[in-house]
Amino acid sequence: MSGVPPDPPRDGELLSAAVKAVRRHRGLTTAEVAAAMNMALRTYERFESGATRLNLDHIHRFAAATNSDPYALILAVVIGSPEFARRSADNKMATILTIAVQRFDRTIQDRLLDLDARTLIAAVTGMFDTLLDGDETSEQAQAWLKTGAAELLATRPKPGR
């Protein structure tokens, strides 16, 4: 044993595993998803295999085609957990977090500079501790998510250069 840890998976490998997990969770074939994304099957296969660079437009198109969470797909790569994308596909957890961060940024603006890491860590870990205690769903929460998702989409750069 050399004591050298194995190389972590590449971003493409992580995204590939996340996309496959979500597609399988939805019970869809590659051809069905490619068609829903308005994409040639071979292009979709390259995307799903992780052979291409991370493409935010493809991630958002995939999420729309599979009714999943595009931000969970991105976070799955960031945190090294492809299963996070599958687990968040229905409840849109990462989209909810992104909406909350967007609204917080818009509200607090430059006062964000004055928040120290200790305060942020306490707030965020406190939120997750509360989530561990139980979960609730409501029509109000669904309306909040729908409005926030529309706001995220409106501020997202359009594909292309």
Rank of each mutant, 00 (worst) to 15 (best):
Met1His: 09
Ser2Trp: 13
Gly3Asp: 14
Val4Pro: 04
Pro8Trp: 15
Asp11Pro: 15
Asp11Tyr: 15
Gly12Trp: 15
Glu13Val: 05
Leu15Gly: 00
Ser16Lys: 09
Arg23Asn: 03
Arg23Met: 05
Arg24Asn: 11
Leu28Gly: 03
Leu28Pro: 01
Thr29Trp: 05
Val33Ser: 06
Ala34Asp: 00
Ala34Pro: 00
Asn38Arg: 14
Met39Gln: 06
Leu41Tyr: 14
Tyr44Gln: 00
Glu45Tyr: 13
Glu45Trp: 13
Arg46Leu: 11
Phe47Tyr: 06
Glu48Leu: 07
Ser49Val: 00
Asn55Cys: 12
Leu56Arg: 15
Asp57Lys: 14
Ile59Ala: 01
Arg61Ile: 08
Phe62Lys: 04
Ala63Gly: 02
Ala63His: 05
Ala63Tyr: 12
Ala65Cys: 04
Asn67Gln: 13
Asn67Gly: 08
Ser68Phe: 11
Ser68Tyr: 10
Tyr71Arg: 06
Ala72Ser: 08
Ala72Thr: 03
Leu73Arg: 10
Leu75Thr: 04
Ala76Phe: 15
Ala76Thr: 02
Val77Ser: 02
Val77Asp: 01
Val78His: 12
Gly80Met: 07
Ser81Gly: 00
Glu83Met: 11
Glu83Ile: 04
Glu83Trp: 11
Ala85Phe: 12
Arg86Asn: 04
Arg87Ala: 10
Arg87Pro: 00
Lys92Cys: 04
Lys92His: 15
Ile96Asn: 02
Ile99Met: 04
Arg103Trp: 12
Arg106Glu: 03
Gln109Leu: 14
Gln109Ser: 14
Asp110Cys: 08
Leu112Trp: 01
Leu113Gly: 07
Leu115Thr: 11
Leu120Glu: 00
Ala123Lys: 03
Val124Thr: 03
Gly126Leu: 03
Gly126Tyr: 05
Gly126Glu: 01
Phe128Tyr: 13
Phe128Gln: 00
Asp129Ile: 07
Asp133Ser: 10
Asp133Leu: 13
Gly134Gln: 01
Glu136Leu: 09
Ser138Met: 10
Glu139Asp: 15
Gln140Tyr: 14
Ala143Ser: 10
Ala143His: 11
Leu145Glu: 06
Leu145Ala: 08
Thr147Asp: 06
Gly148Asn: 02
Ala149Lys: 05
Ala149Leu: 06
Ala150Ser: 07
Ala154Val: 03
Ala154Lys: 07
Thr155Ile: 12
Thr155Asp: 10
Thr155Asn: 12
Pro157Gln: 11
Pro157Phe: 14
Pro157Ser: 07
Lys158Gln: 13
Pro159Leu: 07
Arg161Trp: 13
Arg161Ser: 12
